[in-house]
Design a binder for these strands. Structure first.
Lengths: 199, 199
DNA sequence: CAACCTATATACCGCCCGGTATGAAATGTT
DNA sequence: AACATTTCATACCGGGCGGTATATAGGTTG
């Protein structure tokens, strides 16, 4: 159905290549991921990469899009849980599965990118921080709804509770990247949930 | 009192230079901190740096020692609080003061270093992770004592609670480095303390 | 067939990295 | 005054970085 490709057809699948690039960025961070590593993992040469993805920064942003779409899909689902506690529970289990599973690199790509990016890659930092803020805003909104529905005691502020939860999520990702095992982090999540106020 | 210095005396104060290096590492991370930045901030030339501190890695570890001694001193003090809740409170306020104060770079040098270090600087990662583990072990021990003293309900596991607290602490440092303001983080800390079990 | 277009492969660019060789300057010792 | 010792300033090293120029290979279109 594509209107008849002109010229030599490319020999690689951009989606697969992008997925490989994502793994590299996820493992090493934006700056530490070198073009040599990227091209080798993607199985293509540098000119092909530049022709297809632009440059390193553009490649990273596309990888970040893929990451959010595939790996952070649990976030959208989590907000649909019936209670605030259910939301927190799903967010925690989703984060644990994503950030210390077997098949993928440990830790959160977003955290890795904001923490590891020096002034050079400010645009990356800013981008990730903006995306994170919008995620947190969604959680806040959901918790305000939960308060209205009686899930949360009036004594707790939905925004602060959301901030506390995202803080734990980010802390978990730091620990996961530092080599903490799933059992340990599951224990942390359980403990936090045990402290949770309301339904 | 030093036994009569032979040769040309050095023209800089190693302690001040190390403090300047610490600021650079703290702001940029180990790998992103270049020798050019370091020497400029320290006010010395590269040969002087290498003669006095060895190499970049040795310089970093000395800076890390200084960081723990000066900036993480609140940790030791916190463990002396009379109750488990008091320990948590002091750890949180100390972390907030250290990681999003006005005079120092935001975020935790340890978190920055472990997250941002690629495979190259594995020795750095390992070192920081080890130091962090020993800190957490101290908190666990203190919470076991707290349980014995009745500060904590028997239903909560001291180790898990400690893990949860350090997770929050690390999450706070990620947020601080991401530009979160002190009020917001204070709100997070307050919320977490409000959920705290026991005295 | 040739003409044309696009992806590939190779080799290369300027730049900055961590680290160092070299020689001059500044002190104490004799 | 002459020397030994240590620090300082400059210039330099090989190597890896992100990015690209050039030429060739592999297709579709006339």
């Amino acid at each position: 159905m594509p209107p008849a490709a002109r010229g030599r057809p490319r020999e690689f699948d951009p989606d697969e290549a992008l997925a490989a690039a994502l793994r590299v960025f996820w493992t090493r961070g934006y700056e530490a991921a070198s073009m040599a590593e990227l091209t080798e993992a993607m199985g293509i040469t540098k000119p092909s990469l530049y022709a297809c993805f632009g440059n390193k920064e553009a490649l990273f942003k596309k990888a970040l899009d893929l990451y959010e779409r595939d790996k952070l899909a649990y976030m959208g689902k989590a907000l649909e849980a019936p209670t605030a506690r259910g939301v927190a529970e799903r967010l925690l289990t989703g984060a644990l599965a994503t950030h210390c599973g077997e098949s993928d690199p440990h830790g959160c790509l977003g955290v890795i990118s904001t923490v590891a990016c020096s002034t050079e890659a400010d645009s990356i930092r800013a981008d990730v921080i903006k995306r994170r803020a919008s995620s947190e805003a969604a959680v806040i909104k959901r918790f305000e709804q939960a308060r209205d529905e009686g899930d949360l005691p009036d004594s707790v502020c939905p925004a602060k509770l959301a901030g506390c939860l995202t803080t734990v999520l980010q802390g978990l990702s730091v620990k996961a990247q530092g080599g903490a095992g799933p059992e340990e982090l599951q224990g942390t999540a359980d403990t936090f949930l045990a402290m949770w106020p309301g339904r």
